[in-house]
């Protein structure tokens, strides 16, 4: 049962207060997308052993979606940040690299 901090309302809450929404930073493929791109958008997901970016919803709180960077192996949470971004913020990358010096964001 994770403990997460909502970056909007600042509340640190029990996992039961939140709802997971799968992998973060997916790019939507809409009309005009190739079959492959559309398939990947709908179904292909990363399942890394280590650093992972996830979407979370503060369902029983302020109702906001946010992103969490965490380690699937150690359950370490490197940080949470707004969902209204297409890129991983610098301070999150720094926080990860301070604990995982070899880690690099995927291109």
């Amino acid at each position: 049962m994770l403990r997460l901090t909502c970056p909007y309302c600042g509340v640190t809450g029990e996992e039961t207060e939140f709802h997971p929404g799968g992998e973060a930073h997916l790019t939507r493929s809409g009309p005009g997308a190739t079959d492959e791109a559309f398939r990947d958008y709908l179904f292909q997901r990363r399942n890394p052993r280590g650093v992972h970016f996830e979407r979370w919803h503060h369902q029983y709180g302020c109702g906001k979606w946010f992103h969490a960077a965490r380690c699937t192996l150690t359950l370490e949470v490197f940080g949470t940040y707004t969902a209204q971004t297409a890129v991983i913020p610098e301070h999150i990358i720094d926080a990860i690299q301070s604990r995982r010096p070899d880690w690099r964001p995927e291109a």
């Binding site: 929404g21 939507r28 979407r55 919803h57 369902q59 109702g63 906001k64 979606w65 969902a83 209204q84």
Partner: peptide
């Protein structure tokens, strides 16, 4: 309602 909010917040913000 949750569906609308999800799209508004995470795709069409």
């Amino acid at each position: 309602h949750a569906w609308m909010e999800e799209w508004l917040q995470t795709e069409w913000w």
